[in-house]
Amino acid sequence: MSERRISVAAEAAQLPALTRFLQEFCAAAALPAADALAFELALEEVFMNVVMHGAPQGRAPRVEVSLALGADGLALTVEDDGPAFDPLSLPPPDVAAGLEQRPVGGLGVHLVRRLMDAVHYHRAGDRNRLRLVKQSAR
């Protein structure tokens, strides 16, 4: 088992199913717990971004998530058929701001960038494709 795939609607209620899918893959691949948690967080942040920003016409996009274990580590690819949106284009949050000035949003993408080794966005036809890779600490 080196590659698996799941397809869900971009709805918040689908998050537990996605998390379960990822956890089962990581357990079967015997990924270290810290790496598995990093991917859980990355998947939640990327998926919820699509849920929050991907449905301006009221139609929830389809989201396809795939996991592939390769020589460069675990690769998580998240594709959706929502409007073109590159989450990596968002300005970085001010992580030094004081308590009252600190923005409550924008941290998700920042965490994903920091927890993964590589993050790439690509618009392929009518789909957004975000590919995240992290070398296992094993």
């Binding site: 948690l37 859980e40 967080l41 939640e44 942040e45 919820m48 308590l99 009252e100 600190r102 409550v104 949003g105 941290l107 998700g108 965490l111």
Partner: peptide
């Protein structure tokens, strides 16, 4: 054992 940005937001609002 797990906090995402949605959870961080709650800590921030709680602290405020």
């Amino acid at each position: 054992d797990y906090v995402s940005s949605a959870g961080l937001r709650v800590f921030l609002l709680g602290a405020r």
